[in-house]
């Protein structure tokens, strides 16, 4: 009897200790990272040319910019985890990741729950069609057609709002299909299972350049001007870390390195505000 009670007491103490360890994060996350000499970063490496896998390494505009910013903390090792996009923000919330370095569109819902950095690129949504499908000349021409986008993305939200607008204008609504990653949507578009894909102009510009025989852009945005940014937790402990990344991105912009990276990965530059996180429009 006594030994069983002792066991129960020890287990409860151990559980309490674990909870205490989890909640004792009053220390700034930036300090913790510097002392542990390691930062755990979440990325969805299925978003060319922002971040994608090549020969087993995560490469792209995002990783290049991240390495530039983190060069101010040279002793810190980056542990970058490649997970599906739907696990990115939940993983940040459960402290699985310290910070997110993946192109996340700034939306109202996300801005209320998480802390965005200043933008790294333009995320305004446009439509992609098959090159052979010349009939789709304007965004309105996809009324009544099948359009795909990524589940949980702001581009999907923009597509759904566009469909609602078409319906309000008396046109047929869009049949929206959701995919785990944009690559799957592109493949279905090429295979003929979709008529169009809603994705950010920056991604589409590069895609239509490298695969001009398969894909073409439908000129015209289908939503308001939006931006991609990186994300941290919206608590006091993460604030210095978000500030650190903001300083790094602003420095890259003022030194011209940001434009250089944009030219390297996209072939064009984008206008992004540096003084503050822009108000979300979606």
């Amino acid at each position: 009897m006594t030994s069983r009670r002792l066991l129960l007491a020890t287990l409860s103490l151990a559980a309490a200790g674990l909870f205490a360890a989890g909640t004792a994060q009053a220390q700034s996350l930036l300090e913790t990272i510097k002392s542990k000499k390691e930062i755990v970063i979440g990325t969805e490496a299925q978003f060319a040319p922002f971040e994608f896998l090549q020969d087993g390494k995560i490469v792209g505009y995002g990783p290049d910019l991240m390495n530039l910013v983190l060069s101010d903390m040279p002793e810190v090792k980056v542990k970058q985890m490649d997970v599906p996009f739907q696990g990115i923000l939940p993983g940040l919330a459960t402290k699985r990741f310290d910070f997110i370095v993946t192109s996340v569109t700034v939306t109202r819902e996300r801005a209320s729950k998480f802390a965005f950095t200043i933008p790294i690129a333009d995320a305004t949504t446009a439509l992609l069609r098959r090159t052979a499908d010349g009939g789709l000349a304007t965004p309105e021409s996809v009324a009544g057609k099948v359009v795909g986008s990524q589940a949980g993305s702001a581009q999907l939200k923009a597509l759904q709002e566009f469909s609602a607008k078409l319906q309000a204008d008396g046109k047929k609504p869009i049949t929206v299909r959701e995919y785990v990653s944009f690559d799957e949507a592109y493949a279905d578009l090429a295979a003929g299972r979709l008529d169009a894909v809603a994705q950010s102009m920056a991604n589409l510009a590069t895609l239509t350049k490298t695969r001009a025989d398969t894909y073409a852009l439908i000129p015209g945005a289908i939503g308001p001007k939006t931006y991609f940014a990186w994300v941290g937790r919206k608590d006091a402990a993460s604030a210095p870390l978000v500030e650190f990344f903001n300083t790094g991105i602003a420095k890259a912009k003022s030194s011209g390195k940001l434009e250089e990276l944009q030219q390297k990965w996209f072939g064009f530059t984008m206008d992004t505000p540096v003084d503050a996180v822009p108000e979300p429009t979606i």
Binding site: L18, A21, G22, Q25, P90, G91, T94, K95
Partner: peptide, 9 residues
């Protein structure tokens, strides 16, 4: 994968 980090593991 996601739960232990909520307890600091």
């Amino acid at each position: 994968f996601y739960l232990p980090s909520a307890f600091g593991w």
